[in-house]
C-alpha cells in the first residue's frame, strides 16, 4: 500500500491556489498522488471516469467563467456519481451557514482558506488515505477468509469421498 498512488482532484478557479496547494502537497505529503487540476467543477465532472480517490473543491468557482456552477452544486453532482467519494470543500468564506450546507450535502470537511488551510487539507487527505487503506485491508481479509473456508470445505469433501471417513480413528 505504501507505493499506491492516490488520484487527487484539485478544483479551484484561482491558478495561484492550484499551484500553491500542489506545491504544499509535493513538499509535505507522505503519500504519492496523481494530481488532476481543474479551473471549474464542470471540467472536473467531465473527468470523473478517472475515478478520483479524493477531491479538494473550492466553494466559489465563477471568477473567470461567470457561468461556472458553484462548488456546492458540483459537490452534489459528484456525490450522485459516487456517494462514497470524499470531497473536502475549500473556501475563503468563514460562514457557519455555508459550512453546514456543505457538510449536509455530503462534504467530508469544510476548510477555510487561511494561513493554516493547506495543513488542514493535508490532515484531511491523510485521514482519508488511512480510511482507504483500512477499507482495502478489510476487503483483502474478507477475500482471504473466504479462500480459507472454501479450501477447508474442499479438503473435507476430498477426504470423505476418497478415504471414506473423515475421522478414521473414531470407528
Amino acid at each position: 500500500m505504501a507505493d499506491k498512488s492516490y488520484k487527487l482532484f484539485l478544483v479551484d478557479d484561482d491558478e495561484m491556489v492550484l499551484t500553491s496547494l500542489e506545491n504544499h502537497l509535493k513538499n509535505h505529503s507522505q503519500h504519492r498522488y496523481e494530481l488532476h487540476k481543474f479551473p471549474t467543477g464542470e471540467a472536473a465532472l467531465e473527468k470523473m471516469d478517472i475515478k478520483p480517490d479524493i477531491v479538494i473543491l473550492d466553494y466559489f468557482l465563477d471568477s473567470v467563467d461567470q457561468n461556472a456552477k458553484p462548488g456546492i452544486e458540483i459537490l452534489k453532482q459528484m456525490k450522485q456519481i459516487d456517494s462514497n467519494l470524499p470531497v473536502v470543500m475549500l473556501t475563503k468564506e468563514d460562514s457557519i451557514e455555508i459550512a453546514t450546507e456543505t457538510v449536509r450535502s455530503g462534504a467530508y470537511d469544510y476548510v477555510i482558506k487561511n494561513d493554516t488551510a493547506y495543513y488542514k487539507v493535508q490532515n484531511n487527505i491523510n485521514n482519508i488515505v488511512k480510511a482507504i487503506s483500512l477499507k482495502h485491508f478489510v476487503g483483502l481479509q474478507k477475500k482471504y477468509t473466504w479462500a480459507v473456508v472454501i479450501s477447508l470445505v474442499l479438503m473435507i469433501v476430498y477426504i470423505t469421498f476418497f478415504h471414506g471417513n473423515l475421522f478414521p480413528g473414531a470407528e
Binding site: D14, M16, V17, S20, F60, S63, V64, Q66, K92
Partner: peptide, 17 residues
C-alpha cells in the same frame, strides 16, 4: 454586483499571496 463579488473574492487571495 455578482461579477464584482466574484472577482473581488478571487483577488483577495492573490493580494494575500
Amino acid at each position: 454586483m455578482d461579477r464584482l463579488r466574484a472577482i473581488a473574492h478571487k483577488m483577495k487571495q492573490s493580494i494575500e499571496f
